[in-house]
Design a protein around this nucleic acid. Structure first.
Lengths: 231, 231
DNA sequence: CACTGTAGGTGTACGCCGTACACTTGTCAA
DNA sequence: TTGACAAGTGTACGGCGTACACCTACAGTG
Protein backbone atom coordinates (compact mmCIF):
# COMPACT_ATOMS: atom_id res chain seq x y z
CA UNK A 1 0.00 0.00 0.00
CA UNK A 2 2.67 2.44 0.89
CA UNK A 3 5.31 1.06 -1.43
CA UNK A 4 3.54 0.43 -4.70
CA UNK A 5 0.34 1.97 -5.79
CA UNK A 6 -0.25 0.05 -8.96
CA UNK A 7 0.95 -3.27 -10.29
CA UNK A 8 1.77 -1.53 -13.52
CA UNK A 9 3.75 1.67 -13.77
CA UNK A 10 6.18 3.18 -11.34
CA UNK A 11 6.94 1.90 -7.88
CA UNK A 12 6.29 4.68 -5.42
CA UNK A 13 9.24 5.50 -3.26
CA UNK A 14 9.09 5.53 0.51
CA UNK A 15 11.55 6.36 3.23
CA UNK A 16 12.02 2.65 3.90
CA UNK A 17 12.72 1.90 0.26
CA UNK A 18 15.16 4.75 -0.06
CA UNK A 19 17.06 3.74 3.07
CA UNK A 20 17.25 0.11 2.06
CA UNK A 21 18.49 0.95 -1.41
CA UNK A 22 21.01 3.34 0.11
CA UNK A 23 22.40 0.65 2.40
CA UNK A 24 22.61 -1.78 -0.50
CA UNK A 25 24.41 0.78 -2.64
CA UNK A 26 26.89 1.65 0.11
CA UNK A 27 27.50 -2.06 0.72
CA UNK A 28 28.32 -2.48 -2.92
CA UNK A 29 30.32 0.68 -3.68
CA UNK A 30 31.54 1.89 -0.32
CA UNK A 31 31.10 5.39 1.05
CA UNK A 32 33.31 6.69 -1.70
CA UNK A 33 31.22 6.61 -4.81
CA UNK A 34 28.06 6.75 -2.77
CA UNK A 35 26.14 9.82 -3.82
CA UNK A 36 22.60 11.05 -3.89
CA UNK A 37 22.76 10.99 -7.66
CA UNK A 38 23.95 7.41 -7.80
CA UNK A 39 21.26 6.36 -5.38
CA UNK A 40 18.62 8.14 -7.43
CA UNK A 41 19.80 6.39 -10.55
CA UNK A 42 19.64 3.05 -8.75
CA UNK A 43 16.02 3.79 -7.89
CA UNK A 44 15.34 5.02 -11.42
CA UNK A 45 14.30 8.38 -10.22
CA UNK A 46 15.56 11.92 -10.51
CA UNK A 47 17.97 12.98 -7.73
CA UNK A 48 15.66 15.55 -6.22
CA UNK A 49 12.94 12.95 -5.71
CA UNK A 50 14.92 11.55 -2.77
CA UNK A 51 14.49 14.79 -0.89
CA UNK A 52 10.82 14.09 -0.48
CA UNK A 53 11.77 11.18 1.80
CA UNK A 54 14.94 12.29 3.56
CA UNK A 55 15.94 15.75 4.69
CA UNK A 56 19.35 15.68 3.03
CA UNK A 57 22.40 13.46 2.73
CA UNK A 58 23.15 13.71 6.43
CA UNK A 59 19.66 12.63 7.31
CA UNK A 60 19.98 9.78 4.87
CA UNK A 61 23.19 8.62 6.55
CA UNK A 62 21.50 8.81 9.94
CA UNK A 63 18.79 6.51 8.70
CA UNK A 64 21.25 4.11 7.12
CA UNK A 65 23.23 3.83 10.34
CA UNK A 66 20.09 3.10 12.29
CA UNK A 67 19.34 0.23 9.92
CA UNK A 68 22.72 -1.21 10.80
CA UNK A 69 21.94 -0.83 14.50
CA UNK A 70 18.67 -2.63 13.96
CA UNK A 71 20.59 -5.67 12.73
CA UNK A 72 22.50 -6.00 16.00
CA UNK A 73 21.21 -8.59 18.47
CA UNK A 74 20.18 -7.23 21.82
CA UNK A 75 21.84 -9.02 24.74
CA UNK A 76 19.53 -11.54 26.34
CA UNK A 77 19.55 -12.06 30.09
CA UNK A 78 18.80 -15.75 29.69
CA UNK A 79 22.51 -16.47 29.62
CA UNK A 80 25.19 -15.42 32.04
CA UNK A 81 26.44 -11.93 31.32
CA UNK A 82 29.63 -13.05 29.61
CA UNK A 83 27.77 -15.11 27.04
CA UNK A 84 25.26 -12.34 26.53
CA UNK A 85 28.01 -9.81 25.94
CA UNK A 86 29.95 -12.19 23.74
CA UNK A 87 26.93 -12.84 21.55
CA UNK A 88 26.22 -9.18 21.23
CA UNK A 89 29.81 -8.35 20.37
CA UNK A 90 29.91 -11.01 17.69
CA UNK A 91 26.67 -9.68 16.32
CA UNK A 92 28.10 -6.16 16.15
CA UNK A 93 31.18 -7.39 14.34
CA UNK A 94 29.03 -9.27 11.86
CA UNK A 95 26.89 -6.22 11.16
CA UNK A 96 29.95 -4.01 10.71
CA UNK A 97 31.47 -6.55 8.34
CA UNK A 98 28.32 -6.59 6.26
CA UNK A 99 28.29 -2.79 6.20
CA UNK A 100 31.87 -1.72 6.57
CA UNK A 101 31.07 1.80 5.40
CA UNK A 102 29.22 2.24 8.69
CA UNK A 103 32.13 1.76 11.08
CA UNK A 104 33.17 5.37 11.22
CA UNK A 105 29.58 6.56 11.42
CA UNK A 106 27.98 4.37 14.08
CA UNK A 107 28.77 6.66 16.97
CA UNK A 108 29.10 9.91 15.07
CA UNK A 109 25.61 10.42 13.65
CA UNK A 110 22.80 11.51 15.88
CA UNK A 111 21.14 8.41 17.21
CA UNK A 112 18.01 6.79 15.83
CA UNK A 113 15.58 4.51 17.65
CA UNK A 114 17.45 1.27 17.01
CA UNK A 115 20.61 2.87 18.33
CA UNK A 116 18.89 3.95 21.53
CA UNK A 117 17.21 0.60 22.03
CA UNK A 118 20.56 -1.09 21.63
CA UNK A 119 22.54 1.06 24.01
CA UNK A 120 19.75 0.91 26.53
CA UNK A 121 19.62 -2.89 26.36
CA UNK A 122 23.36 -3.34 26.79
CA UNK A 123 23.55 -0.95 29.69
CA UNK A 124 20.46 -2.59 31.14
CA UNK A 125 21.96 -6.06 30.90
CA UNK A 126 25.09 -4.98 32.74
CA UNK A 127 23.16 -3.19 35.48
CA UNK A 128 20.66 -6.02 35.97
CA UNK A 129 23.42 -8.53 36.33
CA UNK A 130 24.91 -6.58 39.15
CA UNK A 131 27.43 -4.17 37.71
CA UNK A 132 27.56 -0.89 39.59
CA UNK A 133 26.87 2.18 37.51
CA UNK A 134 30.54 3.07 37.27
CA UNK A 135 31.54 -0.50 36.50
CA UNK A 136 28.89 -0.76 33.80
CA UNK A 137 30.19 2.40 32.15
CA UNK A 138 33.71 1.02 32.23
CA UNK A 139 32.61 -2.32 30.88
CA UNK A 140 30.59 -0.79 28.08
CA UNK A 141 33.35 1.59 27.12
CA UNK A 142 36.11 -0.97 26.89
CA UNK A 143 34.00 -3.47 25.00
CA UNK A 144 32.74 -1.07 22.38
CA UNK A 145 36.13 0.50 21.92
CA UNK A 146 37.54 -2.94 21.22
CA UNK A 147 34.71 -3.98 18.92
CA UNK A 148 34.74 -0.87 16.77
CA UNK A 149 38.50 -0.70 16.73
CA UNK A 150 38.77 -4.30 15.67
CA UNK A 151 36.26 -3.77 12.90
CA UNK A 152 38.24 -0.74 11.77
CA UNK A 153 41.47 -2.73 11.53
CA UNK A 154 39.73 -5.62 9.90
CA UNK A 155 38.32 -3.39 7.22
CA UNK A 156 41.73 -2.07 6.30
CA UNK A 157 43.54 -5.39 6.34
CA UNK A 158 40.97 -6.60 3.89
CA UNK A 159 41.36 -10.32 4.28
CA UNK A 160 39.33 -12.95 5.98
CA UNK A 161 40.84 -16.41 5.75
CA UNK A 162 44.30 -17.43 6.95
CA UNK A 163 45.42 -17.94 3.36
CA UNK A 164 44.29 -14.49 2.37
CA UNK A 165 46.05 -13.07 5.38
CA UNK A 166 49.33 -14.48 4.20
CA UNK A 167 48.77 -13.30 0.67
CA UNK A 168 47.87 -9.83 1.86
CA UNK A 169 50.89 -9.63 4.13
CA UNK A 170 53.23 -10.59 1.33
CA UNK A 171 51.60 -8.26 -1.14
CA UNK A 172 52.07 -5.44 1.33
CA UNK A 173 55.63 -6.47 1.97
CA UNK A 174 56.45 -6.37 -1.70
CA UNK A 175 54.72 -3.07 -2.20
CA UNK A 176 56.87 -1.65 0.56
CA UNK A 177 60.15 -2.90 -0.75
CA UNK A 178 62.96 -2.43 1.71
CA UNK A 179 61.69 -4.70 4.43
CA UNK A 180 65.30 -5.25 5.42
CA UNK A 181 65.06 -2.12 7.50
CA UNK A 182 62.03 -3.50 9.32
CA UNK A 183 62.90 -6.98 10.52
CA UNK A 184 59.81 -7.47 12.63
CA UNK A 185 57.51 -6.51 9.80
CA UNK A 186 59.44 -8.92 7.65
CA UNK A 187 58.74 -11.59 10.23
CA UNK A 188 55.04 -10.89 9.96
CA UNK A 189 55.17 -11.17 6.20
CA UNK A 190 57.04 -14.42 6.52
CA UNK A 191 55.20 -16.15 9.33
CA UNK A 192 51.63 -14.95 9.14
CA UNK A 193 50.75 -17.13 6.13
CA UNK A 194 51.59 -20.31 7.99
CA UNK A 195 50.27 -19.21 11.37
CA UNK A 196 46.63 -20.05 10.77
CA UNK A 197 45.59 -16.49 11.50
CA UNK A 198 41.94 -15.71 11.05
CA UNK A 199 39.95 -12.65 11.91
CA UNK A 200 37.08 -14.34 13.73
CA UNK A 201 39.47 -16.21 16.00
CA UNK A 202 41.54 -13.14 16.65
CA UNK A 203 38.43 -11.18 17.53
CA UNK A 204 37.23 -13.84 19.94
CA UNK A 205 40.63 -14.05 21.60
CA UNK A 206 40.73 -10.36 22.42
CA UNK A 207 37.07 -10.29 23.38
CA UNK A 208 37.51 -13.08 25.90
CA UNK A 209 40.56 -11.38 27.32
CA UNK A 210 38.45 -8.32 27.96
CA UNK A 211 35.45 -10.19 29.35
CA UNK A 212 37.71 -12.14 31.69
CA UNK A 213 39.26 -8.91 32.85
CA UNK A 214 35.84 -7.40 33.47
CA UNK A 215 34.79 -10.44 35.48
CA UNK A 216 37.92 -10.27 37.55
CA UNK A 217 37.56 -6.58 38.36
CA UNK A 218 34.07 -6.87 39.72
CA UNK A 219 34.97 -9.46 42.31
CA UNK A 220 32.83 -12.52 41.77
CA UNK A 221 33.31 -14.00 38.29
CA UNK A 222 29.65 -14.05 37.25
CA UNK A 223 27.04 -13.39 39.86
CA UNK A 224 25.54 -10.50 41.76
CA UNK A 225 27.87 -7.61 42.28
CA UNK A 226 28.74 -4.70 44.44
CA UNK A 227 31.99 -3.15 43.52
CA UNK A 228 34.08 -0.15 42.97
CA UNK A 229 35.41 0.05 39.43
CA UNK A 230 39.10 0.57 40.02
CA UNK A 231 40.58 -2.28 42.05
CA UNK B 1 67.07 26.70 0.78
CA UNK B 2 64.32 24.50 -0.43
CA UNK B 3 61.55 26.46 1.21
CA UNK B 4 62.23 30.05 0.38
CA UNK B 5 64.31 31.30 -2.48
CA UNK B 6 64.34 34.96 -1.64
CA UNK B 7 63.75 36.94 1.51
CA UNK B 8 61.41 39.11 -0.46
CA UNK B 9 58.65 37.84 -2.68
CA UNK B 10 56.83 34.53 -2.57
CA UNK B 11 57.68 31.65 -0.32
CA UNK B 12 58.34 28.62 -2.48
CA UNK B 13 56.20 25.66 -1.69
CA UNK B 14 57.59 22.27 -0.82
CA UNK B 15 56.10 18.91 -0.05
CA UNK B 16 56.86 19.43 3.64
CA UNK B 17 55.18 22.83 3.69
CA UNK B 18 52.12 21.54 1.89
CA UNK B 19 51.74 18.57 4.23
CA UNK B 20 52.17 20.66 7.34
CA UNK B 21 49.64 23.22 6.17
CA UNK B 22 47.27 20.40 5.27
CA UNK B 23 47.49 18.88 8.73
CA UNK B 24 46.94 22.28 10.30
CA UNK B 25 43.91 22.91 8.11
CA UNK B 26 42.40 19.51 8.85
CA UNK B 27 43.01 20.04 12.55
CA UNK B 28 41.13 23.30 12.34
CA UNK B 29 38.25 22.41 10.01
CA UNK B 30 37.99 18.63 10.14
CA UNK B 31 37.95 16.33 7.15
CA UNK B 32 34.67 17.84 6.07
CA UNK B 33 35.51 21.21 4.67
CA UNK B 34 39.03 20.09 3.94
CA UNK B 35 39.63 20.49 0.24
CA UNK B 36 42.48 21.03 -2.14
CA UNK B 37 41.05 24.42 -2.95
CA UNK B 38 40.83 25.47 0.69
CA UNK B 39 44.37 24.31 1.28
CA UNK B 40 45.59 26.22 -1.75
CA UNK B 41 43.89 29.34 -0.50
CA UNK B 42 45.51 28.87 2.90
CA UNK B 43 48.90 28.76 1.17
CA UNK B 44 47.98 31.73 -1.02
CA UNK B 45 48.46 29.76 -4.13
CA UNK B 46 46.31 28.52 -6.99
CA UNK B 47 44.83 25.02 -6.43
CA UNK B 48 46.77 23.34 -9.21
CA UNK B 49 50.07 24.44 -7.69
CA UNK B 50 49.65 21.76 -5.02
CA UNK B 51 49.85 19.05 -7.64
CA UNK B 52 53.50 19.84 -8.21
CA UNK B 53 54.16 18.52 -4.69
CA UNK B 54 51.63 15.76 -4.13
CA UNK B 55 50.24 13.31 -6.65
CA UNK B 56 46.61 13.98 -5.79
CA UNK B 57 44.33 14.26 -2.80
CA UNK B 58 44.86 10.62 -1.85
CA UNK B 59 48.61 11.05 -1.89
CA UNK B 60 48.20 14.16 0.22
CA UNK B 61 46.18 12.23 2.80
CA UNK B 62 48.81 9.51 2.85
CA UNK B 63 51.43 12.09 3.69
CA UNK B 64 49.27 13.72 6.34
CA UNK B 65 48.67 10.39 8.06
CA UNK B 66 52.37 9.66 8.10
CA UNK B 67 52.94 12.95 9.87
CA UNK B 68 50.56 11.81 12.57
CA UNK B 69 52.45 8.52 12.84
CA UNK B 70 55.67 10.43 13.20
CA UNK B 71 54.29 12.08 16.34
CA UNK B 72 53.77 8.77 18.08
CA UNK B 73 56.44 7.73 20.59
CA UNK B 74 58.18 4.49 19.82
CA UNK B 75 58.13 2.03 22.70
CA UNK B 76 61.42 1.99 24.57
CA UNK B 77 62.84 -1.24 25.94
CA UNK B 78 64.30 0.55 28.93
CA UNK B 79 61.12 -0.07 30.86
CA UNK B 80 59.25 -3.29 31.42
CA UNK B 81 56.98 -4.11 28.54
CA UNK B 82 53.80 -2.99 30.25
CA UNK B 83 55.11 0.51 30.84
CA UNK B 84 56.51 0.66 27.34
CA UNK B 85 53.17 -0.35 25.85
CA UNK B 86 51.26 1.97 28.15
CA UNK B 87 53.41 4.93 27.17
CA UNK B 88 53.02 4.16 23.52
CA UNK B 89 49.25 3.76 23.81
CA UNK B 90 48.91 7.07 25.61
CA UNK B 91 51.04 8.69 22.95
CA UNK B 92 48.80 7.29 20.22
CA UNK B 93 45.70 8.57 21.94
CA UNK B 94 47.27 11.99 22.32
CA UNK B 95 48.19 12.13 18.63
CA UNK B 96 44.71 11.03 17.60
CA UNK B 97 43.16 13.66 19.84
CA UNK B 98 45.31 16.34 18.29
CA UNK B 99 44.37 15.12 14.81
CA UNK B 100 40.97 13.54 15.17
CA UNK B 101 40.40 13.59 11.43
CA UNK B 102 43.09 10.92 11.18
CA UNK B 103 41.40 8.18 13.21
CA UNK B 104 39.60 6.57 10.33
CA UNK B 105 42.60 6.90 8.04
CA UNK B 106 45.52 5.63 10.13
CA UNK B 107 45.22 2.04 9.02
CA UNK B 108 43.45 2.57 5.73
CA UNK B 109 45.98 4.57 3.72
CA UNK B 110 49.01 2.88 2.30
CA UNK B 111 51.76 3.15 4.84
CA UNK B 112 54.53 5.72 4.88
CA UNK B 113 57.94 5.45 6.55
CA UNK B 114 56.85 6.67 9.99
CA UNK B 115 54.03 4.13 9.94
CA UNK B 116 56.42 1.30 9.15
CA UNK B 117 58.95 2.39 11.73
CA UNK B 118 56.21 2.48 14.32
CA UNK B 119 54.70 -0.90 13.63
CA UNK B 120 58.13 -2.43 13.42
CA UNK B 121 59.16 -0.97 16.76
CA UNK B 122 56.04 -2.13 18.57
CA UNK B 123 56.27 -5.62 17.19
CA UNK B 124 59.96 -5.61 17.96
CA UNK B 125 59.40 -4.58 21.57
CA UNK B 126 56.93 -7.40 22.10
CA UNK B 127 59.16 -10.00 20.49
CA UNK B 128 62.31 -8.86 22.30
CA UNK B 129 60.57 -9.03 25.61
CA UNK B 130 59.72 -12.63 25.05
CA UNK B 131 56.32 -12.77 23.39
CA UNK B 132 56.03 -15.60 20.93
CA UNK B 133 55.16 -14.60 17.40
CA UNK B 134 51.55 -15.61 17.79
CA UNK B 135 51.28 -13.96 21.19
CA UNK B 136 52.80 -10.75 19.85
CA UNK B 137 50.25 -10.65 17.05
CA UNK B 138 47.45 -11.15 19.54
CA UNK B 139 48.84 -8.51 21.85
CA UNK B 140 49.29 -5.98 19.09
CA UNK B 141 45.87 -6.60 17.65
CA UNK B 142 43.94 -6.24 20.87
CA UNK B 143 45.83 -3.13 21.96
CA UNK B 144 45.46 -1.25 18.71
CA UNK B 145 41.84 -2.22 18.34
CA UNK B 146 41.19 -0.77 21.78
CA UNK B 147 43.22 2.37 21.19
CA UNK B 148 41.66 3.26 17.86
CA UNK B 149 38.21 2.28 19.00
CA UNK B 150 38.51 4.41 22.10
CA UNK B 151 39.69 7.37 20.07
CA UNK B 152 36.76 6.87 17.74
CA UNK B 153 34.25 6.94 20.59
CA UNK B 154 36.00 9.83 22.22
CA UNK B 155 35.79 11.88 19.05
CA UNK B 156 32.05 11.40 18.80
CA UNK B 157 31.27 12.04 22.45
CA UNK B 158 33.06 15.31 22.07
CA UNK B 159 33.77 16.10 25.68
CA UNK B 160 36.87 15.94 27.78
CA UNK B 161 36.27 16.94 31.39
CA UNK B 162 33.81 15.34 33.80
CA UNK B 163 31.68 18.46 33.75
CA UNK B 164 31.50 18.47 29.98
CA UNK B 165 30.58 14.81 30.04
CA UNK B 166 27.58 15.54 32.17
CA UNK B 167 26.56 18.48 30.06
CA UNK B 168 26.91 16.46 26.87
CA UNK B 169 24.91 13.58 28.29
CA UNK B 170 22.09 15.85 29.29
CA UNK B 171 22.12 17.71 26.01
CA UNK B 172 21.83 14.41 24.20
CA UNK B 173 19.09 13.28 26.52
CA UNK B 174 17.08 16.39 25.84
CA UNK B 175 17.62 16.14 22.13
CA UNK B 176 16.26 12.64 22.24
CA UNK B 177 13.17 13.41 24.20
CA UNK B 178 11.36 10.30 25.33
CA UNK B 179 14.01 8.94 27.63
CA UNK B 180 11.22 7.33 29.62
CA UNK B 181 11.38 4.42 27.18
CA UNK B 182 15.08 3.99 27.85
CA UNK B 183 15.57 3.89 31.62
CA UNK B 184 19.23 2.92 31.49
CA UNK B 185 20.09 5.74 29.14
CA UNK B 186 18.21 7.99 31.47
CA UNK B 187 20.40 6.75 34.27
CA UNK B 188 23.48 7.69 32.29
CA UNK B 189 22.14 11.16 31.66
CA UNK B 190 21.36 11.49 35.34
CA UNK B 191 24.44 10.02 36.96
CA UNK B 192 27.30 10.67 34.59
CA UNK B 193 27.61 14.34 35.53
CA UNK B 194 28.30 13.54 39.16
CA UNK B 195 30.39 10.43 38.52
CA UNK B 196 33.68 12.18 37.90
CA UNK B 197 33.98 10.56 34.49
CA UNK B 198 36.93 11.63 32.42
CA UNK B 199 38.26 10.34 29.17
CA UNK B 200 41.89 9.96 30.14
CA UNK B 201 41.01 7.95 33.21
CA UNK B 202 38.57 5.81 31.31
CA UNK B 203 41.19 5.12 28.66
CA UNK B 204 43.78 4.14 31.24
CA UNK B 205 41.32 1.85 33.01
CA UNK B 206 40.59 -0.19 29.90
CA UNK B 207 44.20 -0.13 28.81
CA UNK B 208 45.39 -1.59 32.09
CA UNK B 209 42.69 -4.22 31.96
CA UNK B 210 44.05 -5.30 28.60
CA UNK B 211 47.71 -5.16 29.60
CA UNK B 212 46.97 -7.20 32.73
CA UNK B 213 45.15 -9.75 30.61
CA UNK B 214 48.07 -9.95 28.22
CA UNK B 215 50.48 -10.45 31.08
CA UNK B 216 48.34 -13.19 32.53
CA UNK B 217 48.02 -15.07 29.24
CA UNK B 218 51.69 -15.33 28.63
CA UNK B 219 52.42 -17.03 31.92
CA UNK B 220 54.80 -14.92 33.95
CA UNK B 221 53.37 -11.43 34.60
CA UNK B 222 56.32 -9.46 33.19
CA UNK B 223 59.51 -11.32 32.43
CA UNK B 224 60.98 -13.48 29.77
CA UNK B 225 58.48 -15.65 28.00
CA UNK B 226 57.82 -18.84 26.15
CA UNK B 227 54.20 -19.38 25.64
CA UNK B 228 51.35 -20.38 23.49
CA UNK B 229 48.83 -17.59 23.04
CA UNK B 230 45.61 -19.32 24.00
CA UNK B 231 45.74 -20.58 27.58
C1' DC C 1 77.43 37.99 -18.73
C1' DA C 2 73.86 35.81 -21.89
C1' DC C 3 71.46 31.39 -22.79
C1' DT C 4 68.49 27.87 -21.93
C1' DG C 5 66.33 23.73 -19.66
C1' DT C 6 63.35 22.85 -16.15
C1' DA C 7 60.91 22.99 -11.79
C1' DG C 8 57.31 25.55 -9.95
C1' DG C 9 53.18 28.39 -10.39
C1' DT C 10 48.91 29.79 -13.44
C1' DG C 11 44.35 29.73 -16.06
C1' DT C 12 40.86 27.44 -18.15
C1' DA C 13 37.80 23.82 -18.47
C1' DC C 14 35.23 19.42 -17.56
C1' DG C 15 32.38 16.37 -15.16
C1' DC C 16 31.07 15.22 -10.74
C1' DC C 17 28.70 16.57 -6.24
C1' DG C 18 24.64 18.34 -2.90
C1' DT C 19 20.59 20.75 -3.07
C1' DA C 20 17.36 25.32 -3.54
C1' DC C 21 13.34 26.49 -5.97
C1' DA C 22 9.62 26.46 -9.04
C1' DC C 23 7.05 23.30 -11.83
C1' DT C 24 4.10 19.26 -13.23
C1' DT C 25 1.76 14.95 -12.37
C1' DG C 26 -0.77 11.39 -10.16
C1' DT C 27 -4.00 9.90 -6.44
C1' DC C 28 -7.61 9.95 -3.34
C1' DA C 29 -11.45 12.25 -0.50
C1' DA C 30 -15.41 14.78 -0.94
C1' DT D 1 -16.10 15.60 -11.16
C1' DT D 2 -13.13 18.26 -8.71
C1' DG D 3 -9.60 20.01 -6.24
C1' DA D 4 -5.99 19.56 -2.65
C1' DC D 5 -1.92 17.62 -1.57
C1' DA D 6 1.83 14.36 -1.85
C1' DA D 7 5.24 12.67 -5.03
C1' DG D 8 8.28 13.28 -8.85
C1' DT D 9 10.68 16.62 -12.33
C1' DG D 10 13.81 20.24 -14.48
C1' DT D 11 16.83 23.75 -14.13
C1' DA D 12 20.39 26.04 -12.00
C1' DC D 13 24.20 27.33 -8.75
C1' DG D 14 28.35 27.05 -6.31
C1' DG D 15 31.91 23.87 -4.78
C1' DC D 16 34.76 19.87 -5.61
C1' DG D 17 39.10 17.14 -7.80
C1' DT D 18 42.08 17.47 -11.44
C1' DA D 19 43.63 17.13 -16.79
C1' DC D 20 46.07 19.99 -19.84
C1' DA D 21 48.36 23.73 -21.90
C1' DC D 22 50.73 27.63 -20.72
C1' DC D 23 53.93 31.01 -18.50
C1' DT D 24 57.93 32.41 -15.59
C1' DA D 25 61.91 32.67 -12.95
C1' DC D 26 65.77 30.63 -11.47
C1' DA D 27 70.17 27.42 -11.75
C1' DG D 28 73.80 25.65 -14.23
C1' DT D 29 76.53 26.07 -18.28
C1' DG D 30 79.38 28.43 -21.73
Amino acid sequence: MTQATKDSGRRRLSRQLVLQAAVALADRDGLEGFSMRQLAQELEVVPMALYKHVANKDGLLDGMVDIVFSEIQLPSIDHDWKSAMRRRAISVRAALNRHSWAIGLMETRNPGPANLRNHNAVMGCLREVGFSFAAAIHAYSVQDAYIYGFALQEQTLGFETPGDAGAAAQRRAQAIGALDDYPYLAEIAAKLPESGYDNAGEFAWGLDLILDGLGRRRGVPAGRGTDSPTP
